[in-house]
């Protein structure tokens, strides 16, 4: 059974002017135990809101208006705040983009990690300190003992993010949600933090939901990837296949937006629509080079697509195709794979 099974999740924001905005629209995906799932999208795609909805940390303006969030078989959407508090930090943890705002500047990082042990387990001060230092070792903070007594401001961004990971993983959760955890970091520091996450994920058999706008980071890290656009999931696929032969024109466009030497850029035209007034039919059709009449009228559901060849789309197949099982795309005319070659 999947550790996380999100079914038809829908999140609405109530705006000040009385209108509503659908930030996540009918999204479904699953994460198996020990699996790394990437959630990719640009700003306004709803990827962060999805994470906050799973954690039930949406602010007061937002509501889960439909769908289920089955975590280990139980629906988080139906849980009370008290029940959620027992799950958050203990069974599902989250790491954010900006660690400075999540760390309390008035306490040492050691206090903040050992506090987690004391709060969730019946643990004394000495033991919790010992465990905190162990966690610092696991996230590869140099000189973990000296680190214990330091304050957040004494650390660089990369070190702070390691502290956040230590806090998040202290209780050995089943699921870690990481929302752009390395976006604010430099390339070499990003690589360090990613490798820490990767190691711990494997050692602990952790399920990981990794949210990012960076396709290459996701490709590097994830087993499976969901691509979001305009509040909806456009494509779900095994990672290597998604990047070698995208089936949804949006995924294809994103890949073509990555600059490569000696190749002309062919970026997606236009900009994202105003979420308050989404277009009819497929959300992507105003920017889609392949859009046809049906795309303008009829919203495509996310469904399993045939493994290449059996498509109506122009262009020859002939691509490796792969196993193709469980590939899902929300497109009336999924690409056949030939269009995506890098």
């Amino acid at each position: 059974m999947a550790i996380l099974d999100v079914r038809n999740l829908t999140v609405d924001f109530n705006l000040d002017d009385g209108g509503t905005l659908r930030a996540v629209d009918d999204s479904s995906f699953t994460i198996e135990r020990g699996e790394v799932m990437g959630l990719v999208g640009e700003s306004g795609s709803g990827k962060s809101v999805t994470a906050l909805a799973i954690m039930r940390l949406l602010d007061s303006q937002a509501d889960i208006t439909a769908g289920q969030i089955l975590f280990d078989g139980e629906d988080l959407a139906a849980k009370s705040e008290a029940e959620m508090r027992a799950i958050r930090g203990r069974r599902i943890s989250m790491v954010f983009q900006e660690p400075m705002t999540s760390l309390n500047p008035a306490y040492t990082v050691g206090d903040q990690v050992s506090e987690v042990f004391r709060a969730h387990f019946d643990m004394g001060f000495g033991e919790s300190k010992q465990r905190a230092i162990e966690m610092f070792e696991r996230v590869k903070i140099p000189q973990p003992k000296d680190t214990y007594g330091k304050f957040p401001h004494e650390f660089s961004g990369g070190m702070r993010q390691r502290v956040m990971i230590a806090i998040a993983l202290a209780c050995g959760p089943d699921l870690l949600i990481a929302d752009e955890p390395t976006t604010a970091l430099d390339v070499t520091i990003q690589a360090q933090v990613l490798s820490v996450i990767q190691d711990l994920q494997r050692d602990m058999g952790l399920a990981l939901l990794f949210i990012s706008h960076d396709l290459e980071v996701v490709a590097q890290l994830c087993d499976k990837v969901a691509v979001m656009y305009g509040a909806r999931i456009m494509e779900v696929s095994e990672s290597t296949e998604l990047f070698s032969s995208p089936r949804h024109p949006y995924t294809d466009g994103l890949l073509r937006s990555i600059p490569r030497r000696g190749q002309p850029l062919t970026p997606i035209a236009g900009t994202i629509f105003d979420l308050r007034s989404p277009p009819d039919g497929c959300r992507f059709h105003p920017r889609c080079p392949y859009a046809e009449d049906r795309c303008r009228r009829e919203m495509p559901e996310l469904r399993v697509v045939e493994p290449v060849a059996a498509s109506t789309d122009p262009g020859s197949s002939g691509d490796s195709g792969g196993t193709g099982d469980r590939r899902q795309a929300a497109c009336h005319f999924p690409l056949t794979g030939a269009g995506a070659k890098a």
Partner: peptide, 16 residues
Amino acid sequence: EARPHFGKRERLRPLE
């Protein structure tokens, strides 16, 4: 080397 890559699922070898 620190740059992530498509189709390079092996572990990153970051500089410390």
